[in-house]
């Protein structure tokens, strides 16, 4: 059993080390820069989510009229903040030795949404203009829109080195959910801040859960 006792060198390992050392200077770093590829995946994820929303629900009829107004801008800002937080977490999760900080990454979006909900004067109840239907449409729409984004985000993460796969999948889901929600703002007709602050994050959390479940299999290397 102690053919090579503690501290002793294994002949197999010696041979392996020599073989690996001969490949010095030949690391595969061809192709476009890593950051550019990652940015490409995120852009593709946003594109895919927008396509799903437009194909499934279609843009809201008065979109051109409200395009520059706070009604739309508020939702876009909230989801952009969330996406940026997700982006930071995903980047950290695919870089070994880098600790993701979920609280500080998600705080800006959380504070923004909470303040907006508190200051909400729209009169739209938190459950939406047509309770249940509005909420279900929002949850389902964001989740479906986020699924292709989740696939692309996981693919992008596979090009990095994720080492805690469940957590990495969770962050991928957070980012994909935020991207899906961002796309869903084009279709969403519920303009109450309380509604958005409640249901959008719930939908994003749903996608994060899916990501966490998929992570260990999808990200293994």
């Amino acid at each position: 059993m102690t053919r090579h006792a503690a501290g002793g060198r294994s002949p197999g390992t010696d041979e392996l080390v020599r073989r690996l050392a001969r490949e010095a200077g030949h690391a595969a770093s061809r192709g476009p820069p890593r950051n550019l590829v990652f940015a490409g995946f995120v852009a593709a994820a946003l594109g895919a989510s927008v396509l799903v929303v437009l194909a499934m629900i279609g843009a809201r009829a008065d979109l051109p009229a409200i395009a520059g107004s706070w009604i739309l801008l508020f939702k876009v800002t909230g989801m952009l903040l969330l996406a940026v937080g997700g982006l930071r977490l995903v980047r950290a999760a695919m870089t070994p030795g880098t600790e993701p900080h979920p609280i500080s990454a998600l705080a800006p979006a959380a504070v923004f949404l909470a303040l907006s909900a508190v200051l909400d004067r729209s009169g739209v109840p938190p459950a939406g203009a047509r309770p249940l239907l509005s909420a279900l449409l929002c949850l389902g729409g964001i989740t479906l829109a986020a699924l292709p984004a989740l696939g692309l985000t996981l693919l992008a993460m596979r090009r990095g080195i994720p080492t805690r796969l469940g957590r990495a999948g969770l962050y991928a889901g957070l980012l994909a959910g935020a991207i899906g929600a961002l796309a869903y703002t084009l279709a969403c007709v519920n303009d109450g801040a309380a509604f958005v602050a409640l249901w959008y994050p719930l939908a994003v959390l749903t996608v994060a859960g899916i990501g966490a479940a998929l992570g260990p299999r999808a990200l293994a290397w």
Binding site: V17, A21, A24
Partner: peptide, 8 residues
């Protein structure tokens, strides 16, 4: 830099 000795 391709230094196999140092890498080994």
């Amino acid at each position: 830099r391709g230094d196999a000795m140092a890498y080994e």
